[in-house]
């Protein structure tokens, strides 16, 4: 008897989460283009918006002020975007490798699988966004870390929202198969206009403002503009964003578990193709 210890207990659970993180780390390091890609797009975006910000700085009045927040918005948006993609890509790796069946019959629990995906999302964001944020200081004199402690709150809100969306998207792919893969790339972009990444909420039509205010990232971008443009830290925005996050994460978890159960009812775990 080899003595598998696949049952409960925090140590066994941490071991299984570690095993999944190790798997994704093996995957990541096996391909340098994948590693490069993590930094490539954030860098391209940073330069494009950085030059635009430099141009706006040369203008006068509000335009110059608003321009000062552009790079901040780009970097924070990247946390949300890369966070969701990082979560979902790790999941899709299992679908592409047709490995989900092996995992589902192993002692790995759904919660442990999700925890590993969250850690990988965090790792991918750190690899992708941190070097770019340092480059922004060097090339454009924009220091996102100047947001101070508020940045920690913003980061938490954006990461948790990215996980909530990732959970929903992965649940749908689990249930519908790889035919639903495009949701991984497309659903998050709904946040771009609605969460008011580059403009204040008041820009939106009145009725759409209610939708925007129901999204946690809106409070991040409003809060960032309050600091960079008005020089005011708004803890109320931070707290509202965090509270909304709890609801979104709970909905994401419930949706993933319900879709996983539905996949087990409909036999979707046996067919992980299109």
């Amino acid at each position: 008897m080899i003595g598998a210890t696949g049952r409960g207990g925090p140590a066994a659970s941490a071991g299984r989460i570690g095993a999944m993180i190790l798997r994704y780390w093996y995957l990541l390091r096996s391909s340098w283009p994948r590693l490069l890609e993590l930094v490539y797009w954030p860098t391209v975006q940073m330069f494009m918006w950085g030059f635009l910000q430099s141009y706006l700085h040369q203008q006068e009045g509000m335009l110059a002020l608003a321009g000062g927040a552009l790079l901040g918005a780009v970097l924070l948006w990247d946390i949300l975007f890369r966070g969701q993609i990082g979560f979902s890509i790790s999941f899709l790796e299992e679908m592409w490798a047709q490995n989900l069946g092996h995992l589902m019959i192993s002692p790995l629990r759904a919660g442990e699988f999700i925890a590993a995906l969250m850690v990988m999302s965090l790792i991918r964001v750190i690899i992708g966004v941190v070097p770019v944020s340092v480059m922004a200081v060097y090339f454009f004199g924009f220091n996102i870390y100047g947001l101070g402690l508020a940045l920690v709150g913003f980061f938490v809100i954006l990461m948790v929202t990215s996980w909530a969306i990732g959970l929903l998207v992965c649940g749908l792919v689990l249930r519908q198969g790889l035919g639903a893969e495009s949701l991984v790339w497309s659903l998050i972009f709904l946040m771009l206009p609605l969460a008011c990444v580059y403009y204040p909420v008041t820009t939106l039509p009145h009725w759409l403002q209610y939708v925007a205010l129901a999204l946690p990232p809106t409070y991040v971008f409003e809060g960032m503009r309050a600091i960079l443009i008005d020089g005011v830290f708004r803890p109320d925005l931070l707290m509202t964003g965090l509270a909304l996050n709890l609801i979104y994460l709970a909905i994401g978890l419930a949706a993933f578990l319900a879709l996983l159960r539905s996949a087990r009812i409909h036999g979707s775990l046996l067919v992980s193709g299109e």
């Binding site: 080899i2 003595g3 598998a4 210890t5 696949g6 066994a12 071991g15 299984r16 570690g18 095993a19 999944m20 190790l22 798997r23 093996y26 995957l27 096996s30 391909s31 490798a97 092996h102 995992l103 192993s106 002692p107 790995l108």
Partner: peptide, 18 residues
Amino acid sequence: RLTVRQNLTVYGRLYGLP
């Protein structure tokens, strides 16, 4: 894309093997 050893290591850890 994982090597044989990497795959067996990941699954061994999932099963909590000493």
